[in-house]
Design a protein around this nucleic acid. Sequence first.
DNA 1: TTTATATTTCGCCACTTGACGAAATGAAGG
DNA 2: CCTTCATTTCGTCAAGTGGCGAAATATAAA
Lengths: 114, 114
Amino acid sequence: MRNLVKTFKALSDPNRIRILKMLEVRPLCVCEIRDILQLANSTVSKHLSLLRDVEFILDEKDGKWVNFRLNDEQYNQYVSKLLPLLAEWLPDDAAIKRDREKVNQVDRYISCVS
Amino acid sequence: MRNLVKTFKALSDPNRIRILKMLEVRPLCVCEIRDILQLANSTVSKHLSLLRDVEFILDEKDGKWVNFRLNDEQYNQYVSKLLPLLAEWLPDDAAIKRDREKVNQVDRYISCVS
DNA sequence: TTTATATTTCGCCACTTGACGAAATGAAGG
DNA sequence: CCTTCATTTCGTCAAGTGGCGAAATATAAA
């Protein structure tokens, strides 16, 4: 129960939804997400650790970066049902579309030095 | 987006999850739910209006009572996907089980006079 | 119409949440 | 080892949430 509620809480914030929808396009690091969402680094980091906590996303060290990607493995029953649903939803949302275009433009070598 | 977030927020509270899982058994009025959850009338009413707002539940006047039941109609894409998932989840949760046993015992003619 | 009672609305309080900047951490490269 | 820089952690603050009791509303019955 507790874990289920935590899982829904993770989905109860527009910025976290935006992050998940961006990660549908490709894995991203904190700086890239920060540049797209226009939030402080620390804020993005907190959102990501929350999403990781309930296993919506996984992180992989890549040199000095951390790549965050959707968890498409199947060991978490909530995640494995909810991520595919989310992927079907909001296909026409203007903000989401804009975010996903930006995903294809951002470059971590430019985003991160700041 | 806004509506989707609101929908997940509605699922982000243990008492609201308990209410939905109780309504899987049968429709209930505010007093019956209040007796099972041991909350104030006004608190239960607020939870119910929130769940109704995002169309997880419907209400029907029945004399001086209001019966709340799950919305099993199919016009809301989020609800029609999420309610069936919720119905599969938490099959072994102790609190949920206790609640559902109580659903079969409460009687609004006893619960409500207080 | 008056009374009883089920529900909703309102105002209040404690706690949580999402935001930030500053400081701490950790890995890469000089 | 020391510097650089991506990320995380910490402290703080404003806004949102869930709880309550009291007052308002609505329906049934007397």
